[in-house]
């Protein structure tokens, strides 16, 4: 079942085209990685899918009645509020029926319950990212969009993150994440979208990209981009 689909999605900033005519769809429980070099248009694409940025052209279709969770690259929360206060505030702004229930659930799934009363400013980078993700998940979304979720995490925190994402997908949540660590795409995604200069160049399983290239995934990815002039 498709929970989100983009059709001919484009976005320009003045004369610069950041995303050009991108189309794809996401199925429930699917983990999809968006990979590409810096400036490929990954963040712009995720912002449009999240509804945080108006597309210049094309459209996004979402599953009716279900929210789309968005976790921006930079943590978007209030550092002078506690973990609990942040979650409560955003749950109320999301107009959830059961604010306390949703907050308790997020504290539990992110393992933040013991730190609930702490100011976010005093948390480690990894824990701040967990709060950031928890806020994105508050409304029990059918799709979770993660923009470079592992960029500020150490290896152990990254491991926990991907385990958490796998658990979400198992529960039926479609997860679309951007990363410039191509190995994270190969290891944790069911599908990869390769972007460069705003264009979607590849949409398929990671194995397909490296198949027959005689290279590891990273080498095959670089080769793929070079062949297409990027």
């Amino acid at each position: 079942m498709s929970v989100l689909s983009a059709s001919g999605l484009s976005r320009s900033f003045g004369a610069r085209v950041a995303v050009r005519d991108v189309s794809f769809s996401l199925e429930a429980g699917e983990r999809v990685a968006v990979v590409g070099p810096n400036g490929a248009g990954k963040t712009t694409l995720l912002s449009m899918l999240a509804g945080a940025l108006e597309p210049s052209g094309g459209s996004v279709a979402r599953l009716a009645g279900r929210a789309t969770g968005w976790v921006p690259q930079q943590p978007a929360l209030y550092r002078r509020l506690t973990v609990l206060e942040n979650l409560r505030l955003f749950a109320r702004l999301e107009r959830l029926d059961d604010v306390d229930g949703a907050v308790a659930r997020m504290l539990e799934v992110t393992g933040l319950a013991p730190r609930a009363g702490e100011l976010v400013a005093r948390l480690s980078g990894g824990n701040v990212q967990r709060v950031n993700i928890a806020i994105g998940l508050l409304a029990d979304p059918s799709v979770l969009l993660l923009d470079e979720p592992s960029s500020s995490l150490d290896p152990r925190q990254r491991q926990r993150l991907w385990e958490f994402v796998a658990g979400l997908a198992t529960g039926g949540t479609a997860v679309l994440y951007s990363t410039h660590h191509v190995l994270e795409a190969e290891r944790y995604a069911d599908r990869v979208l390769v972007m460069a200069d705003g264009e979607l160049l590849f949409d398929g399983a990671p194995g397909v990209l490296s198949e027959g290239a005689g290279l590891d995934f990273e080498g095959a990815f670089v080769d793929f981009l070079r062949e297409r002039g990027h």
Binding site: S47, A50, G51, A52, W70, P72, Q74, P75, A76, L77, Y78, R79, F90, L93, E94, I135
Partner: peptide
């Protein structure tokens, strides 16, 4: 500065 503006205006307020 807290990056919350975008999060808030995508449907919350």
């Amino acid at each position: 500065a807290e990056n919350t503006y975008r999060r808030l205006v995508r449907g919350m307020v």
